[in-house]
Design a protein around this nucleic acid. Structure first.
Length: 774
DNA sequence: GTTGGTATCTGTGGA
DNA sequence: AGATACCAAC
């Protein structure tokens, strides 16, 4: 057999060579999952299946691209003909050729979440509902969840239980919003991200022209990566394609229930459980990849301890033979800013001590907003870095503005695009006129573009809007014969967008102009056809419409240039699937990680825990966890206690020497006196040495001096602490253990400290350093 | 009717 | 901090 099979361990090899019939691969972190997937595809090709009969679904373009690269190393160029891509991009492509069968134009618009939210806000207003009761974001995620569970507006209205639930929740009009939202999307020829899945399901369900048969025949082998992140709708589509009488059910799902982190998007690990059941009769084979080739032992064991707190898991034992490795470091800081500094310090130190390059290091956080402080100190230390996530290129205002013009050229029914540019650059069309156009559109069930003609607006406004339409119609004509690039430059100039940006000579203004020019360059590249976002390898369609559908599904992250030696800063979510020699997981505080949004539901906390599990399993050799006792959130100082997740790691995996705070407190005292003015203002003049770090007076009350000299203090192992013993604590001094309870992995001692006025304190033994005296 | 300023509210993650 | 809401002035 071919040599690539020799690169696999026994289970991996089984998962690769058993290509027929349904397979579930449960793959722990660092267990060679991508290798199995790619070799499996290569193996299927080697055995004689044409690559285009293989459908491989992933969640990110990056994963798809990486997979193709790795397949091509085994089977060469044939790899490019594999139908591999993200759920959204592949489904969008299918829909593009089949849209008319379900009453959509093939050049349908893809609404991003901003478009969806803006449309929902509009609907809430027009239905005269209270925006506080009917929060647009909450409504959006509720709609998303309905679609992900195949609940149409019609079905919703016909289900008394759901309506009753809404009545109880004091949101009885939700169904109206949902119904209207779906109608308006349809009217605008637009699909939101969920529609790309939902409408495909609808297509397969309604099965016009036997389209279902066509795709069942076409995809002889289906592989799904990150199966734990699929939702009910995605699984329903997969089943439609795979499960039918006479099917060979050649499906391979790869996933890890412990790494399911997209519940907020409707993902459910129930799919894995259902999958096992649904394909039992087809002879499903389950393979568990349990050896972790990525991380050293302390990291793997700590991760196992953390995830074991969650119930209901697929049983597996992740292990590593990479050696014990370094213990996990903990950094405690008093403020978010100090956290930034100390992480940067630690990066400097690690680079020296372990000879790490910048690219070996990542800082992972729960929310993108946390990146700022790290950025600040890395810059100060001259450590090059790159931030991923946050605002992507295509989400920048000036870029979206031009894209909106282009969307209108392709699809004049696109109301969200129209609203965005109807008065930008300013052409004297105010709120009143826009409202009138919008009202007219609703009254006549037309698009706003159509309603401009009959709306009761002033002659002046009407003239302006006719000019506006005329310009876009001309652009649309150009689109018929010319290239996308020609249309885009025409629109950029004729709309006045370029002139408007040129008038702004500020630094930011220049940047905006530059961004618009890069967008134009990007369109040109798309037309010329070399650099292609294209995953499926058969994209010959270089129309403007095709371009717009492509970029709607692309993120900056996908555009990452390789090989730059920089420190990576990203959210934990986007770090999934990646690995770094040294990982800093920061902001480990209650309300932040776990997120405050998760705290009222144990299920959501469990998801946060899985997210933490993902974070720590990114590390190969060094893992550092940090938290701050106070931080600026939403404009004011917040005090958060350390994350519960820290307590879930056994102290034997933690490096004790850094977990105490004496040095940081003292170092910090110097800044303490300079509390005046706001943090934000101070942050701007970041080069001044006397940086003002907010107001944290309440902390001072708790400030304690050390009772013990750190040099002579020798903490005893956690297991030796027994009830009744006299112990010494660094800050609280001498005390007597009254009682020990809690769990085996997290014992909690009640200790009475004489020097603290005989106060009983509950001490987590895995964290506290206690020296036994007698 | 439109524009520009200030006050108020809101808040994760991402295809 | 950012977006949106509201109000005063052209």
């Amino acid at each position: 057999m071919s040599s690539y099979l020799d690169e696999l361990n026994e289970v991996q090899r089984k998962a690769v060579v058993n290509t027929e019939g349904p397979v579930l691969v449960v793959a722990g972190p660092g267990s060679g999952k991508t290798r199995v997937l790619t070799y499996r595809i290569a193996h299927i090709i080697e055995k004689g299946t044409p690559p285009w009969e293989i459908l491989s679904l992933t969640f990110t373009n990056k994963a798809a691209r990486e997979m193709k690269e790795r397949i091509s190393k085994v089977v060469g160029d044939r790899a490019n003909r594999v139908y591999a891509g993200t759920f959204h991009s592949i489904f969008a492509r299918i829909l593009r050729s089949e849209a008319e069968k379900i009453g959509y134009p093939s050049n349908f618009t893809i609404y991003d979440s901003d478009d969806s939210k803006s449309l929902i806000t509009t609907i809430i207003k027009q239905l005269n509902l209270d925006g506080k009761v009917y929060n647009a974001n909450a409504m959006r995620s509720k709609i998303s969840s309905c679609k992900s569970n195949l609940i149409t507006p019609k079905l919703y209205v016909q289900t008394p239980e759901m309506l009753e639930k809404d009545r109880v929740a004091k949101k009885p009009h939700f169904h109206k919003i949902y119904t209207e939202y779906v109608n308006r999307c349809k009217r605008a020829g637009a699909m939101d991200f969920d529609d790309l899945l939902f409408r495909l399901f609808e297509l397969l369900q309604k099965n016009p022209d036997n389209v279902l048969e066509k795709y069942r025949k076409r995809f002889k082998y289906i592989l799904v990566d990150e199966f734990q992140d699929t939702n009910f709708l995605q699984y329903s589509i997969i089943k439609k394609l795979v499960k039918y009488p006479g099917s060979r059910a050649n499906i391979c799902a790869v996933g890890d229930d412990a790494q399911s982190i997209y519940g907020f998007r409707g993902a459910t690990i129930q799919n894995i459980l259902d999958y096992e059941k649904d394909f039992t009769k087809d002879g499903i084979q389950v393979f568990k990849l349990e050896q972790n080739y990525r991380s050293t032992d302390h990291i793997v064991k700590a991760a196992n301890e953390v995830i074991s707190v969650n119930k209901n898991q697929i049983k597996k034992t992740i292990w590593s033979d990479k050696g014990e490795g370094a213990k996990i470091q903990i950094i405690k800081a008093l403020t978010d800013s100090e956290e930034g500094k100390r992480v940067a310090d630690a990066i400097m130190e690690q680079k020296m001590r372990y000879h790490l390059s910048n690219q070996d290091i990542a800082i992972l956080y729960r929310t993108n907003a946390q990146s700022r402080v790290f950025e600040e100190y890395l810059r100060r230390y001259n450590i090059p870095y790159r931030i991923y996530g946050g605002l992507s290129f295509y989400q920048r205002k000036e870029v979206k503005d031009l894209i909106s013009y282009l969307r209108l050229v392709v699809n004049p029914a696109d109301d969200e695009a129209l609203k965005r540019v109807i008065n930008y650059p300013k052409r004297g069309i105010g709120k009143t006129s826009i409202d009138k156009v919008s009202d007219t559109a609703n009254a006549l069930n037309q698009t706003m573009w159509q309603a401009i003609d009959s709306a009761p607006i002033s002659a002046k406004a009407k003239n302006t809007l006719f000019e506006f339409k005329k310009m876009l119609i001309e652009a649309a004509k150009k689109a018929k014969d010319g290239t996308a690039y020609e249309v885009a430059t025409f629109v950029a100039r004729q709309s006045g967008l370029i002139d408007h940006l040129k008038n702004d000579t500020s630094i930011e203004g220049l940047g905006r102009l530059e961004n618009v020019n890069s967008l134009l360059d990007g369109i040109n590249e798309f037309v010329e056809g070399d650099l292609l976002i294209d995953i499926e390898g058969e994209n010959e369609d270089r129309s403007l419409s095709s371009y717009l559908q492509n970029i709607a599904l692309v993120t900056d992250f996908d555009a990452k240039e390789h090989g730059d030696n920089v420190v990576t800063l990203m959210s934990v979510h986007s770090a999934k699937g990646l690995e770094f020699k040294s990982v800093f997981c920061v902001g480990l505080e209650e309300n932040l990680f776990p997120s405050f949004m998760s705290l009222d539901s144990p299920e959501q906390v469990a998801e946060e825990r899985r997210l933490f599990y993902v974070a720590i399993t990114r590390a190969e050799q060094n893992l550092t966890l940090s938290f701050a006792t106070s931080r600026y959130q939403h404009g004011s100082v917040r005090y958060n206690s350390p994350s519960r997740f820290l307590e879930e790691i056994g102290s034997d995996h933690l490096d004790g020497s850094v977990s105490l705070t004496a040095s940081s407190r003292q170092a910090f005292g110097a800044h303490n006196n300079a509390t005046s003015g706001g943090y934000r203002g101070a942050a701007k003049k970041q080069n001044t040495s006397s940086k003002v770090i907010g107001n944290f007076k309440p902390l001072r009350k708790k400030q304690l001096t050390l009772k013990v000299d750190p040099a002579t203090f020798k903490p005893s192992p956690m297991g030796e602490i027994q009830s009744g013993m006299k112990v010494l604590h660094m800050k609280f001094g001498e005390g007597q253990v009254v009682n020990i309870d809690g769990s085996a992995t997290n014992p909690i001692a009640t200790i009475r400290f004489a020097e603290m006025g005989n106060e009983d304190k509950r001490i987590m033994l895995k964290f506290a350093k206690l020296q036994i005296m007698s």
